[in-house]
Design a protein around this nucleic acid. Structure first.
Lengths: 261, 261
DNA sequence: CACGCATACTCGTATAGACGAGTGGGCAAG
DNA sequence: CTTGCCCACTCGTCTATACGAGTATGCGTG
């Protein structure tokens, strides 16, 4: 009677449920019940092979099910672990209100500092480029745009990758085209330039990440991304900026406040 | 020279990239380039085994990578197909505005009809039950609640599963406790009962579905869910309803309009 | 023509074995 | 004691094989 028996039961050979699914079910239930806690190591493949009397590929198949669900992750040479739920970043719908634009630091830095995290922004890239069909449509048929790319990290972990697109006639030759646009970010600069912001429109999708996104955000398998596309409109109802953001879904909760009118 | 060669290249034995990843890469690229179109069948496992000269498990491993990315799905006895992007349902942030509450039919039915789809609502369940810790907190420490559960289908496909929770002192004995609450839905009834709605708060998360959610929403592998929790507040700032919604992420785009003030 | 069956092709499940590579601990040499 | 190597244990990759089960097609029988 190994210690595994206390957490995991036996297989039901009469069940028509596949063996690897039964094993995955038992592991999932043990995790849900807290028998295996966050960050804790699950039994090794070899141990499960012995416990259940199945082949190694069957056990690996079970693990791959749980990986796909985002419940566990494997580390080469170490073991398979219950995936810890990282602290989430809450994005409130008023995060672009003017009153948050006073300070010199970016909203991301200020907010993360307040939450006791160590924020960082890297892979800054600012360049002019051809607009994609989608961006062009959103900005009102512009051909070329200024693209500002940056990646946000929290405590060393990349959590978000964002690109802002602005029409060249607005951004060229202004602080917006500088790597550091100054206090209050590009929205403060836009208003200084006479483009008074009226409202934002945000589109939200969720999907599995592309291989490139997995790399950039160092995503574990089984973690989707939230894809947010924000368009900023000025008081003349002209789209002055489109911000395309891809976030690690396990690190974010988006929050919106809506009037009931 | 089989027809596969026109779409798929050869393996690079000198690469340190795993063979199954190289195969997945080639298939992914062929799909991205449109060489395999939506709904189209990919080469069978046996064909790829022959084309690449690898074992069947290696080919299956490639397919499982693409399945995890939500790019393809397998059908037993038929083949592996490029997963079609279903038509998405766009949820606008003004979808609960009073002006949309006039008609007799539910917002879901009206909207889907307008889009030319065939909507359906099923698995209606209305019952009193004990509030979970989370729901109780959101509703302001209530012990028991009225729960209204329903599932939404579009053209026969389940796309959304929602549960509304209301405090018993508000809902008991009212049309809200009936399976069909009448024109304008429960928000119209709440206002008739004197609970004038002031604003909503929506929390959005994305994650991989639980096995139960996979079953209820008939989700293909590699499709995340959007988890939306909406709280409705009346003019006295009391939470009068919490609606917990799980949506198939490939069927939805959420859209929010935000003031820039 | 209609039905039913055989068959071939598809993916699903499972076994057994082999070697590679990352990790960490213990032991021996310096 | 410190350094460095070896070894045991971990997961990663790949092969070869077997049988099961769902699907589609064609052919022969009635």
């Amino acid at each position: 009677m190994t210690s595994l028996s206390s957490h995991l039961g036996a297989l039901d050979p009469t069940s028509d449920r596949a063996v690897f699914r039964q094993i995955a079910d038992q592991l999932r239930e043990a995790i849900d019940r807290g028998r295996f806690k966050e960050g804790q190591k699950l039994p090794s493949e070899a141990e499960l092979v012995e416990h259940y009397g199945v082949s190694r590929m069957t056990v690996r198949n079970s693990f791959s099910v749980l990986q796909g669900e985002g419940l566990v992750h494997a580390e080469h040479g170490k073991g398979v672990f219950v995936r810890p739920r990282p602290p989430v970043r809450r994005l409130a719908s008023d995060r672009f209100a003017r009153r948050h634009r006073e300070q010199g630091k970016s909203a991301f830095i200020v907010e993360a500092d307040a939450a006791g995290s160590h924020p960082k922004v890297d892979s800054l890239e600012v360049k002019e480029e051809k607009a994609t069909q989608d961006i062009s449509t959103r900005l009102g048929s512009v051909r070329r745009v200024l693209a500002r790319r940056r990646r946000y990290l929290l405590d060393g972990r990349p959590v978000e990758f964002a690109t802002s697109y602005l029409p060249l006639d607005i951004a060229r030759g202004t602080p917006i085209a500088e790597p550091n646009p100054g206090p209050g970010g590009i929205y403060a600069r836009l208003e200084e330039l006479g483009h008074h912001l009226d409202h934002f429109e945000e589109e939200i999708r969720a999907r599995m990440p592309s291989p490139a996104e997995v790399k950039t955000l160092q995503l574990a398998s089984g973690v989707p991304v939230i894809h947010l596309i924000r368009t900023a409109y000025d008081t003349e109802n002209r789209a002055v900026e489109v911000c395309d953001t891809v976030m690690a879904a396990d690190a974010y909760v988006l929050s919106y406040q809506l009037p009931a009118t």
